[in-house]
């Protein structure tokens, strides 16, 4: 598969991940482009990778597509087990670019370089970028700042569904998916999600999906596209993404030249939180 620029892209992602001053150079050297970011998020074992596999293939029919699959690093050893490719064989063989990222320094977050990596992929010609991630804690904030559309995936019997509702993760989704629809408990989970959304006066889409029922996943794909088509919303996300990315760049540069940066971290956090408030209002 030499027809594309995957080798160059892959190498530069490593540079961006490991050296942020070079990251700036790389990104600034590329012209800005328009691209879409879809977040697919949910607890381990709900079937995110299998859904991503199919959604990515559908996007590939429309344009160049990349998947960033992010899994947590161990806070003790720094190591990580990244197994998402197992379920993305089909999209990989069709030409989707897949990169596994460990969360590294960002405790509970996506990956410190995620803003840059996404922007770099966008400027490198990827029109559709899918972020697959366990969306809790800091990752929740991160994905809100990056994705144009967030698909929150749940599955019955996963045990932590109540947990996610408590943790407020139920608030971040644009589209809600109850996967593994043929498992017992899927229908009731579906009803539960609906009623929670109704209680908070939200009328987001809630879908039932299952790997054996491809049409349900194609339906999800259509719904994602409808969300992506909502321009006003997209523009605000795009701005936010760029602001956050630049903030990150600034922070890292200050970090490099400053011994005690705690106060700056706090300021940075405030700015970020303000941005998020902005989305809600």
């Amino acid at each position: 598969m030499l027809k594309n620029n995957f080798l160059e892209v892959a190498k530069k992602i490593s540079v961006i991940e490991n050296n942020h001053s070079k990251a700036k150079e790389i990104i600034d050297g590329l012209p800005e482009k328009s691209y879409f970011v879809v977040g697919i998020t949910g607890s381990p074992g709900v079937g995110k990778s299998s859904l991503t596999n199919i959604i990515a293939m559908k996007f590939l029919e429309k344009g160049k597509t990349a998947v960033l699959a992010i899994d947590p690093s161990s806070p003790f050893t720094g190591g990580a087990f990244l197994g998402d490719r197992i379920r993305m064989k089909d999209s990989a063989s069709k030409g989707v670019f897949i990169r596994s990222l460990a969360s590294r320094g960002s405790v509970g977050g996506l990956n410190p370089s995620i803003y840059d990596t996404v922007e770099f992929l966008g400027r490198s010609g990827f029109e559709y970028i899918i972020l697959e991630t366990v969306g809790t804690g800091q990752a929740e904030t991160d994905i809100k700042n990056i994705a144009d559309v967030i698909v929150l995936v749940l599955s019955p019997g996963n045990g932590d569904e109540i947990q996610s509702m408590k943790a407020g993760i139920m608030e971040i989704g644009d589209i809600y998916v109850v996967n593994k629809m043929d498992l017992p408990g899927a229908k009731s989970l579906y009803a539960k999600v609906k009623s929670i959304l109704e209680l908070s006066n939200k009328n987001n889409e809630v879908l039932l999906t299952g790997m054996a029922y491809k049409e349900t996943i194609y339906d999800l794909f259509d719904k994602i596209n409808i969300e992506l088509g909502k321009k006003t919303h997209r523009n605000s996300v795009k701005n936010k993404r760029e602001i956050n990315r630049l903030l990150n760049v600034v922070l890292k540069e200050i970090n490099d030249n400053c011994l005690n940066c705690e106060s700056l971290e706090i300021i940075y956090k405030f700015i970020r939180e303000d941005l998020n408030e902005g989305k809600k209002s």
């Binding site: 892959a10 087990f81 197994g83 063989s93 897949i98």
Partner: peptide, 28 residues
């Protein structure tokens, strides 16, 4: 290797040589 602090990409069974090479390339 994970516990030794490495980032391990595990691709599962029945990989063709070209899919292994693709993964090695994309994951750098």
């Amino acid at each position: 290797l994970r516990d030794a602090g490495m980032e391990v990409i595990y691709t599962g069974l029945r990989q063709t040589p070209s899919s292994i090479a693709d993964a090695a390339l994309q994951e750098d």
